[in-house]
Design a protein around this nucleic acid. Structure first.
Length: 212
DNA sequence: TCCCTTTCCGAGTTACATCA
DNA sequence: CTGATGTAACTCGGAAAGGG
């Protein structure tokens, strides 16, 4: 803030040099008479041709001015009247220019913040979607395994039916796995979770099915 | 308390400068 | 030359503060 600082006179000179380089045709009109203070720029009119007529064109702020403004913006985004005047004086700008710069800078800052926030939310959203897909795949896989297990049980039941007709004293009694006891082995009971203890199925748990 | 003026701000727009 | 982009400066409407 110190070594880079120029005096106000130097800065005005810089602006004038720029002006004389880029707009020599109007430079003469802007040079104040000796001892006359530079007046604030006139308000721009909407008419497109007006700039040409009035001779006032948009001027880019110098790198140094921008860097100083950025530095001040970094300290505090809001701009009190006193601070505005001080900055304007330090940079050789109209206080109105400083106010406008801060307004535009706040708008850019907000826009950037929104962009960042959007990117963050999008990343979170994508991660959640990915996890949802993974869980859905897992559900499908488990349902498939369950279906296979049901088929195996049905086959065993059918086989035991055949055995019981010839050997009623079989230790693997039909009643032991009577479908009615399991709710018919349908998905109804499983949709809401495994409500039966694994030992209710067959002695030894579900190991034989290969689920565990 | 109300009205008017001033100042500031955000949002949206315009106009100009610059660059690919 | 032209379209895209960045940005200084503008308009507009609303809020807040101060004074009569």
């Amino acid at each position: 803030m110190t070594t880079m600082m120029k005096t106000q006179t130097q800065q005005v000179d810089d602006q004038m040099v720029l002006l004389s380089q880029y707009y020599p045709e109007i430079y003469d009109q802007l040079i104040p008479q000796q001892g006359e203070v530079m007046k604030p720029r006139r308000r721009r009119k909407k008419n497109k041709t007006d700039a040409g007529i009035s001779g006032f064109k948009k001027r880019k702020l110098s790198d140094e001015q921008v860097s100083m403004l950025e530095q001040n913006f970094g300290d505090e985004h809001k701009l009190e009247s006193e601070r505005k005047d001080r900055i304007a004086s330090e940079l050789g700008l109209d206080p109105r220019q400083v106010a406008v710069w801060f307004q535009n800078r706040r708008a850019r800052w907000k826009s950037k913040k929104l962009e960042e926030e959007y990117a963050k939310l999008k990343t979170e959203h994508d991660t959640t979607i990915l996890e949802k897909c993974r869980l859905e795949t897992e559900v499908l896989k488990l349902k498939e395994q369950l279906s296979e297990a049901e088929n195996k049980i049905n086959r065993l039941v059918e086989r035991s039916d055949g055995l019981s007709s010839t050997s009623p004293s079989s230790s693997f009694s039909v009643e032991a796995i009577e479908p009615s006891l399991f709710g018919g082995f349908g998905m109804n009971g499983f949709e809401d979770g495994f409500y039966l203890q694994e030992t209710s199925y067959i002695h030894g748990g579900l190991d034989w099915i290969g689920l565990i």
